[in-house]
Structure formats: C-alpha cells, structure tokens
Nucleic acid binder design. Sequence first.
DNA 1: TACATATTGTACCTATCGGTACAATATGTC
DNA 2: GACATATTGTACCGATAGGTACAATATGTA
Lengths: 190, 190
Amino acid sequence: MPRTIGERKDAIPALAEVFRTHGFEGASLSLIGAATGLGKGSLYNFFPGGKEEMAQAVLDHIDAWFRDEVFTPLRRAAEPQAGIREMFRVVDQYFHSGRRVCLIGAFALADSRDRFAACVKDYFAEWVDALAVVLRRAGMGAAEARAQSEDVVAVIQGALVLARAANDEAAFGRIMRRQERRLLQALPRG
Amino acid sequence: MPRTIGERKDAIPALAEVFRTHGFEGASLSLIGAATGLGKGSLYNFFPGGKEEMAQAVLDHIDAWFRDEVFTPLRRAAEPQAGIREMFRVVDQYFHSGRRVCLIGAFALADSRDRFAACVKDYFAEWVDALAVVLRRAGMGAAEARAQSEDVVAVIQGALVLARAANDEAAFGRIMRRQERRLLQALPRG
DNA sequence: TACATATTGTACCTATCGGTACAATATGTC
DNA sequence: GACATATTGTACCGATAGGTACAATATGTA
C-alpha cells in the first residue's frame, strides 16, 4: 500500500507564493524547486501535469479556502451586519493587509486567464453572489444588492493593485475601511 | 543626415498590445516580432536596451497619454462636474469599455512592478492627485477628496479585473456608471 | 525479511529564450 | 553618382525553459 500522507498538498502554499510573486509564465521550474524544496522528480511525481497542474492545484486550494472562510460564512451569517464585518476582517487578513496580491486577480489580467478561465470566473462570481445574498437578507433589493456587491468586490481588487503599485500597504486598509462603512450604511435598516 | 522620421514610435501601439496581452515575461521576442512586423534587427536598432526598453517606452507612452488626455484636463476643468464626467467618458473609451486591460495595473500585480516601479507608482499617484484636485475645486474637503479619489481609481482597476475575469465587458460599464453617479452626488454643491 | 510501491536525484532531451554580430541593403545628402 | 548613415535579415550565441527517463532509494505492509 502507498503512504496515506499526501505530501502534494504540503507543497501548495509554497507554490502559491511563487505564482503570486512571478505569475504563471515567470514561475520557472527552478524557482518552483527552490521555493518548495522539491526536485523535479518529486514535483512531477505529485503533479504529473507539470506547471499547469501545479497552478490549477493552487487555484483550487484558493477557491476552496474562500468558499469555506468567506463565501459560505457570508451566506449563512446569522446577522448580516456582523457577517459583512467579518468578511472584511478575514479578507484583510488573507491579503496581509495589502502586502499580498490576489493570485486570481493577477491571473485574470494576464493571459493565464484563458488557461484557467473557469476558476477565475467562478471565484469572482461566487464572491459577488455570496455578498449579494447577505445584502438581500438585510433587506436590500435584488438589483441594488448585486450592484453593491459588484462594486465592493471590484474595489477590493483595485485596492490590491493600488497598494502594490504605490508600495503602500496602508492604502489597502484605508480603502477597505471606507468600503465597509459605506456598505453598512447602505443597508436598509442600518 | 539620418532620416527624421522616428519609426520607433510607430511600433509602440503594437508593443503595448503584446505586453497587455502576455505580460512582460510572456511577451517573447518572437511574439513581439510578429505583432510589430519587425525583425530583431529593427527591434534592437530602435530599442538597443531590448525588451526592457520596449516596455519602458510603452509605459512612458501610456503615462504621457493619460497626462495629456485625463490628468491635465481634469485639473484644468472649467466645470468640475463636467470634468469628472469627461474623465469617465475618456477612460471608458481608452479601456474599450472593459475589453482592454490596464497594462500598468497588470504590471503592478506582477513582478514587473519592481522593474518599472517608478512609472507604475507615479501613474496611479498622479491619477488620484488629479482627481482630488478637481474634487477640492468643487468644494470638497482635502481629506474627503483624497479618499474619494483613491476609491474611484481603485474601483476602476478592480472593474477591469472583474470584467476580464468574467469575460463580461458589460460589468465594466455598469461599475463605471455607478461610480460616476456616486461621485457626482458626493460633491458639496452637487 | 521480502516485496510492492512511492519518492527522489540526476542526466538528458528539444525548443525557445533574450541578445549579439554583421553583412546586405535601403535611404538619404551633397 | 558618391558617400555616410540607417535600417534590416540572417545566422548564431550561451542560458534556460518545461519536460522525460530511469536508476537509486526510501517507505510501508505482510
């Protein structure tokens, strides 16, 4: 019998960091090897599909994380206000307050989007949808909820761009806090 | 005497398109050659610094274009409201209503940011600054003007991410229109 | 211990990368 | 036409890309 420990998943955080830092094209196998501490033998043992499978595994991992930690809690929040606040808190933490970039956002802008189109699309669609659900539950109309959700998800991605462009992590926090306040004030019974 | 016609600048639109589509790393010299119709001889004649100089030329060109067509008109707008409206119109046009990506935003997220840090940083700083100027001239307080400007520039970048992620150009227009309305309504004497 | 399977390092493959050298040619100016 | 300069295509360079082959080794089970 083979070992039951899947070492494969242990490599994913390091892989994520490499792709985040260098993009899909820029993440060479030597960089990947250095970051993970794994040689080609191991890498192609865990990911027979090569670089593409590695990136896909990272995207799946991110998707799952956001589903569990952001989208689902948002949809199920007992109290909409608290749910929204929690979303901003968790997201700020995930992105290291703007020091970390959104890999899926970066992929969306690069030509890697075509390669991973489904993942990239679903990620944002799910986010907008989950946020809209909680807004509706707070009494907001369907159209307004979708609009607000779209705006918020967009501005979070934009804040990451700006923070990284200016090399000013504080910008991310500022924008996030303003959006949180704005969104809470837009609630019907806020 | 040499020719006075600078063919160099004629190559810039095609170069911009290649970098926009494939990123800095992904834009290989063969892709660049195909897109511009120029061989290596010509490319290295016009851009002795190679790929890096090509990308820098593109960034400079974009910087200059936005300065002339967006930032300066914004600062000098006779009527703040009209100036803001014009900004949204020109920006929507520039980004082909969301079908085109912001090269500087894409560079900001990739590791090409480090290479072109100054350009990337100045572009967004200038944009935020120019917008803040017109908001102040409309009677808005300094802090509020900066905050609003930062939010708007961020949301535009985010809208590009979302539009491209969802492969839904319409999303860009929706977000832009909402932001325009929101910003105009935030004006003191709006 | 014996065996099957998983894991790993190393050597190697072809293709392409960014870039250089340079001769051939075009484009002026006088 | 003569001459200087600009422009271009082609051949070539070493380095590295992603990927494969496979023998050596570790690991787990019976």
